[in-house]
């Protein structure tokens, strides 16, 4: 049981590592940002698996906070960076 849950969590972590390739590669800022959003979702899944596998229900709270707040960085990106043409049009 534990082996299965932690194994799946490790697999998801490897998925996150694969997503890092997209962050490194780009090519646009939106690609990098969306990869980070994917990591947020992955983190929620990993934390829920760990909560079950480590028998620590408190970790669901951590997943809850991630689920609620993962969107904040995306909104900051869209509002402050993307809406100004990638931010390279000066002020």
């Amino acid at each position: 049981m534990n082996l299965l849950l932690l194994g799946i969590a490790a697999f998801l972590l490897l998925n996150l590592a694969a997503g890092l390739w997209r962050v490194m590669r780009g090519p646009t800022a939106a690609d990098r940002m969306l990869a980070a959003q994917l990591f947020g979702t992955t983190a929620v899944a990993v934390l829920l698996l760990l909560a079950e596998g480590m028998a620590q229900p408190a970790l669901r709270d951590v997943a809850l906070v991630f689920g609620l707040l993962a969107a904040v960085a995306a909104v900051a990106f869209v509002q402050r960076v993307w809406s100004r043409g990638g931010g390279h049009d000066g002020h």
Binding site: L16, A58, V72
Partner: peptide, 30 residues
């Protein structure tokens, strides 16, 4: 940002869910 997410899982594995929670709230939210 990605580092904050992974670090939060690290705190979880170290048995410090309080710190993981703070890292989640600060790292992801602010």
């Amino acid at each position: 940002i990605a580092f904050g997410l992974v670090l939060s899982m690290g705190w979880v594995r170290l048995g410090a869910p309080d710190v993981a929670l703070a890292e989640a709230a600060i790292g992801a939210g602010i």
